[in-house]
Amino acid sequence: MSTSPTPALSQREQYLDPAMLMKLGGLLIRARSVVEGAIAGMHRSPHRGSSVEFAEYKEYTPGDEIKHIDWKAFGKFDKYYVKQFEDETNLGCYLLLDGSGSMDFGSEGVTKLEYARTLAASFAYFLLRQGDAVGALVFDDAPGVFLPPSSKNRHLDDVLQVLDSIPGTGRTDIARALSSMAERVRRRGIMMVFSDMLDDADRVMNIAKVMRKRKQEVVVFHVMDPAELDLPYEGLTIFEGLEGEGELLVDPDDVRDQYAKEMRAHIDHIQRQCLDGDIEYFRTLTTTPLEQVLLDFISGRL
């Protein structure tokens, strides 16, 4: 998976900078901006067609909607065929937002939590517009508010309210949140996890793989701050953990290389585990335009 923009989009560079985006009103406006921008970038009108996808034909049986009869097929084969759409599989999407203390960090004007929250909201908006059911769960070291999925238009407000309800404190326990979801969700669905993945990766991936085997799709949006990658600080610094890990006095210059190595190994490990477990993985920096992330996801599913 890649976070790099598609060539067509990169030429346009019409996306909003995430930092700028965060300055826009509420979560709904931001989500709408993202989705509208992304759809516009695809040169398609979001108001045409259906969000549900054509799947197959089936012979008409009494009780089927007459409007779904394909008259062209009738002309060809002299039989009534009815179009079947994926919509009819009735997918539920669950947005799992990490609201732990480590998410409350941003070196580029936007915290990982704000970024992830807006991204999740954008997906909610997008999916609801397509008619998909969307549920939500916020968590830190324990599962927080859970919103069951619904495809109603006014459900968006509830989703956004849930996403906005987590303050960004406490420790992280992604595995526990996934376990909670596994207990709650029996039907097929898509679990979209928005987190910085600063947790025990093996434990998280084990649960994710179990869910995958239960026909649940799991998509991981690994949100990172650029400072987490290259530790750009200078001078003697006392680093203070965001989840109560304590303090460390160190000259960043001394440990930068080793830190980058450790972080790279961590990312690679998560990526490999996702690949092995057939889990979609998107790594994104808080400087990456949200539209781009949205499009990457969509384009991967076309």
Partner: peptide, 15 residues
Amino acid sequence: AVRRRFPALDFLIRS
């Protein structure tokens, strides 16, 4: 020394 909040402190400590 400058005091900074940092999420990946575990990685720093390990390094």
